[in-house]
Amino acid sequence: MRMTRRLAAANLLALLIVSCQAAAPAAPPTAAPAAPAAAAPAAGGSNVGGCTVTKDVRIAVVTHGQPTSNFWAVVQNGVKQAQKDLCITVEYSSPETFDMVRMGELIDAAVAKKPDGLVVSLPDASALGPHVKKAVDAGIPVVSMNSGSDVFQKFGILTHVGSDEAVAGMAGGRRLGAMGVKNAICVNDEVGNAALDTRCEGFTKGLAESGAKMKVLAAPTGDPVGVQNAVAASLQSDPTIDGVVTMGPDGAVPTLKAIKAADRLKTVKMATFDLGPDTLQAVQGGEMQFAIDQQQFLQGYMPVLLLMLYKQYLLMPGGGQPILSGPNFVTKDTAATVLSLSKNGIR
């Protein structure tokens, strides 16, 4: 009982201030020296810095996030921070490429190790569903995250932590429309990715409420100069474009360069999904109007925390509805603070 109360205190503290130092005093006296004050969780390794593992709880996390993705690096930091704050063992795995077959195998491998809880992302329900079902049938509590908000109940998943792309897009579209944008382009550097297509659709709907229109621009993937020149071509072929939305920092930085090069910074309002140091600086400097944050750190942190609470007290929020981790709009006022958090891989 003493132990659990301690842990609960650690949980609360951890939620208030996500920092290793805060959680360390709550850990047993045998705790290893706390990690340096730097808020960034150490990358790589499964070292539970700052506390010894107090409880024999093992949570497995399997995502489709490619290791090269900066977005998923933040999710992973959230997972690691939860592991550190809760003093439990968390095993994180993800396929090298966007490969649902491989991911299914990883889920099976995680289930075979009989963890106390399983966290999965569900980008492809038909491919991953059977694997998740196996986990549920084996009596392992499962929480889904990031993608799968529309299907998670079907498989007996307890709850889902993620953002709704349609909701986020719509809110962003309304916001841009309220700024007077009439003719916008949605720079999609991964046409065919359902989540990004939904963002563009949501934005188009949100903009339509104020009578504005939007066209999708199919920019090349992972090629900044290609994106820049695609946007430049688009701006040049249509001088009435007064709004631009990008899908993430990879597209936002070159897009902003194209707008600057075309000398349209004054007439074109720009917004982006997801955060990065350069885009936040642009928001801070007023070159970009806002950035839409789905707060993916929470998508890594919360499922682990929820499963821990479920294991201890059978607590489970959500009531069968997904728990939204965002959107949160970063504007000129908040950009500086968020920027320093972003540099540490938390936002």
Partner: peptide, 14 residues
């Protein structure tokens, strides 16, 4: 690996 090890992210900007 270099980027993650040294900066914790996969994009080195600014």
């Amino acid at each position: 690996a270099m980027a993650r090890l040294l900066t914790g992210t996969t994009v080195v900007g600014s």
